[in-house]
Simulated assay, not measured.
Amino acid sequence: MTHLAVAVILLGAGIGVLRSTINAFSTVIASDAAGVTFGQGLWLRIAILVVTWAVTVAFVMRYAARVKADPSKSLVFDRKATNEAHFLKDTTADVAFTRLQQLVLVLFALTFAVMIWGVSSGEWWMAEMSALFLAAAIVIGVMARLGEGRLVEAGVCVICAGGGGIPVVRGVDGKMEGVEAVIDKDRTAALLAMALGADVLLMLTDVEAVFRDWGTPTQSPIGRIAPDALDAMDFALGSMAPKITSACDFVRAGGRLAGIGRLQDPRAIVEGRAGTQIRVETSVSERRLPPREAAKISTGRKPGSVQGHL
């Protein structure tokens, strides 16, 4: 029945977004674009929210009753054994709802209450709302002692340090200021992996490996290789080059393995059965690579060149 809990969250969130009453990022912005106040039509939106909420609750409860009466009616019945083994492996643990967690929830709710007040009465817009959520994230993160390392140790899949953020630099006076730049996702991932002391860094994309002679009839994937051997090669900027640089930096900083390959091959890459594995051991390069890859090669797409593709 675990997927019912997921349905409650996803359907509930979906209804809340689609039938938003005072959402600053959808209703208020849309009202402003239409030249009306967001209070216009509020009661109609509330009525639609109540109706759709009731329909959603009825749908979930009806489905739950059907599955309870006949488990084979479940949409994930074929994964019953796997799900039970994963989610019911420790049902005796007494999980306490601590005061710290309660305080975090109160602050979280208070943040939204302040945002609603600011948008409705304080003439707030994106800058003020962004500042509010940034401040709340910092306060809650420090108070709850959150961090990537703690989440990783708890077995949580952390999504962080993605490209597209606001790049900043620290000046000689110690102050931070924004700059016009692009945050590269591969180098950011490598920096985070080094900060965490990770053993393995995987950069997964839509090609099976790094290729030699890319774009030619003789192209072939590179298996295991050392960073020193990669230094002697040229890769396409904006394509494979950032991944190669990030992988080499990571293993030289103490990482055991950096892998590049397809999104569906992470285990095979780690086990050396797919993708390109980059390690600091020079013996790996010497054993795996033909002699021609040890020489500096040109960036032109001719035999002997190495190119990448995303």
Rank of each mutant, 00 (worst) to 15 (best):
G178N: 10
S220H: 11
A195R: 14
L202Y: 05
A236T: 12
G261H: 04
A226E: 07
K185A: 09
G254T: 10
R212E: 11
L192C: 06
L202N: 02
P266W: 05
A229Y: 02
A268P: 04
A241D: 15
A209C: 09
L192Y: 02
A181V: 12
G275A: 08
E208Q: 12
E177H: 12
D213W: 07
A274R: 03
L191G: 10
R252N: 14
I260S: 03
C248Y: 01
D265M: 09
D234Y: 09
L204V: 09
L257W: 03
I269C: 06
C248S: 13
V251T: 04
I278G: 00
A258E: 01
A274N: 02
V251A: 02
I278S: 00
G275M: 01
E208I: 07
A258I: 01
M233C: 11
P242H: 06
I269M: 10
R267E: 14
E281K: 07
G254V: 08
I244G: 03
Q219S: 07
A226V: 04
D234H: 06
V210N: 04
M240C: 07
V182I: 15
Q264T: 15
D228L: 13
A209W: 04
R212M: 15
A226Y: 00
L191Q: 09
D249Y: 01
A229D: 08
V210Y: 02
I225A: 01
A189L: 14
V172T: 14
R252K: 11
L237F: 12
A195I: 05
S220R: 14
G223V: 01
G259I: 03
A209T: 08
V270D: 04
T205N: 05
A247K: 04
G261W: 00
D186R: 01
D228C: 12
R262W: 07
G255V: 04
L196N: 07
R224L: 13
E208F: 07
T245P: 03
G259K: 01
G174D: 12
E177S: 14
A247D: 10
G255Q: 04
R279N: 05
I183R: 11
G238K: 13
E180I: 13
A229L: 12
P227R: 04
A189H: 04
G215A: 11
M203D: 03
G215P: 06
P242M: 00
M194R: 13
D173S: 15
V251S: 00
Q264V: 13
K175P: 05
R212H: 11
E281F: 07
S246F: 04
Q277I: 01
F235C: 06
D234V: 10
I183K: 09
I278N: 00
K185V: 09
A195H: 13
L237H: 15
